[in-house]
Design a protein around this nucleic acid. Structure first.
Lengths: 195, 195
DNA sequence: CGAAAATTTGACATGACTCAACTGGAGTGG
DNA sequence: CCACTCCAGTTGAGTCATGTCAAATTTTCG
C-alpha cells in the first residue's frame, strides 16, 4: 500500500517505531489528480503538503512577461508544496501541475500542525528534511553557475533518467534555464558525437 | 551583549520565554576571527554552527579548475555553516572565510545535538528556519534564471547595501555568476545612465 | 613606500537567444 | 478511421549577452 512508501521514506531519515510510523502516516490521505490538473496556482494559498506516490508533477513560476520557468519536477518519492505558502498561509508564487494522472498522499496545514504537536519527533524529521533540501538547492545553484548548458543537460539526464523520459524537452529546457531551441541544438550535437 | 542579538533573532521565528531563550543562547560561545582567516575549508568537517554578530564572511566553493564561486555572504544576523557537513559530519564542499575581523556565536555539533534533546522547541525553531531558507534559495534560483546580469546586480545592491560596501566587486561578480570584467562594464553603463 | 590585488578598458570570441519557417506526432471531433 | 488542429521538436540566420585575454591604472594593505 502507498503508505508503506512513505513510511520507508521517513525511515531513511530518522529511526521511528512502527507505532510512530503508523501514527504519522495515517494522517495523510490519498488524493488522485488527473493529467494537466493544477493542485496549486499562483496567488492561491497552498493548503496541502503532498508526497508523490504515482505520476509526476511540475513546479513552476510564471514571470511578468508570461514566461514559465520550471523550478523542479516531482515524481514518485518526492514532495510537492509551496513551502512558504504552506507554512505561512500566504499567497503562492508557484504553480503545481500534474504531468500525468497521479496520486499523492496529502496532509492539510492544520492537520500537519496537530501532527507536530502530538508527535514531536516529526519536528525533527522535517527539520532534517529541510536542511537536506537547503544543501540540495545550494548545490543546484553552484551547478548552474559552474556548468554550461550542455553540462547541465548531461547532469540532468544521468541524474533523473526516469523524469527525462516522462517530460517534454521544452520543460527540461525551462528547468535548465535555456530555450527549447538551444536544447534542441545541444541534443543534436550530442547525437552526432556519439555516432 | 551579543547574545541579545541572537535572542532577538530567535524571537522573530517562534515564541520563547526568557528562560528558554537564556537556556538556548547560553550554549553558544563567542569566537573571534581575524580578517582572512578560514573557519572551514573544503574537505574538512564542519564542526561549528555560527551566528555572525560582527564582521562579514564569504561562503564559497572552488571548482575543479580552481575558480572560486561565492555562494553567499554572511554579515551580522546571518548564519555560517556547511549545513550538510555539520549535520552528517561529512567532508565539506565549501570554504568559509572572514572578510573582516569578525565575531561569531558558535555551537559545536555535539552541544547542538544536546540542545535539540533538552529543549525540543529548538527542533521547531530550526525546522522553520530551514524551511524559510529553502524558499529563499528557490527564489534566488528563479531570479538567476529570470533576470539578466544587470538586473541581478541591481537587485543585489538594493537588497544588500551594507554588503555591497563591504566586499569587492570581484566577489560580487562571483556571487552573481558573472565575470569581474563584465560587472565592471555594467557599473560603467549604470554610472553613465545616471549622469 | 612597495608589492599584490582589484578595477577598468578594449578587442575579439562564443554561448545562448530570437524569430520564423518547417516537420511530425498526439489528441479530437465528425 | 480519417481529417484536422495543435504543439513539441528541429533548423537556420542573425543578434545580443557575456566570456576571454591582455594590458593599463588604481587601490589596498602590509
Amino acid at each position: 500500500m502507498y503508505r508503506e512508501l512513505l513510511k520507508n521514506y521517513f525511515l531513511k531519515i530518522i529511526d521511528l517505531t512502527s507505532d510512530e510510523l503508523e501514527d504519522i502516516t495515517r494522517r495523510y490521505r490519498e488524493k488522485n489528480v488527473k493529467r494537466g490538473e493544477f493542485i496549486l496556482r499562483q496567488g492561491e494559498v497552498c493548503r496541502l503538503e503532498g508526497y508523490v506516490v504515482k505520476g509526476c508533477f511540475k513546479i513552476s513560476v510564471t514571470d511578468s512577461e508570461g514566461g514559465e520557468k520550471v523550478l523542479y519536477f516531482a515524481a514518485r518519492d518526492w514532495w510537492v508544496m509551496e513551502i512558504d505558502s504552506f507554512a505561512n498561509q500566504s499567497a503562492s508564487d508557484l504553480d503545481i501541475q500534474a504531468l500525468e494522472d497521479s496520486t499523492l498522499l496529502v496532509i492539510s496545514r492544520s492537520e500537519k500542525e496537530r501532527l507536530y504537536q502530538e508527535v514531536p519527533k516529526v519536528e525533527r524529521l522535517f527539520r532534517i528534511m529541510s536542511q537536506r533540501a537547503v544543501a540540495a538547492w545550494q548545490r543546484r545553484l553552484v551547478r548552474n553557475q559552474t556548468m554550461n548548458a550542455e553540462g547541465r543537460y548531461h547532469h540532468f539526464i544521468t541524474t533523473y533518467p526516469e523524469i527525462t523520459e516522462l517530460v517534454t524537452n521544452k520543460l527540461i529546457a525551462s528547468y535548465l534555464g535555456i530555450t527549447q531551441e538551444f536544447l534542441s541544438m545541444i541534443r543534436k550535437r550530442r547525437s552526432i558525437k556519439k555516432a
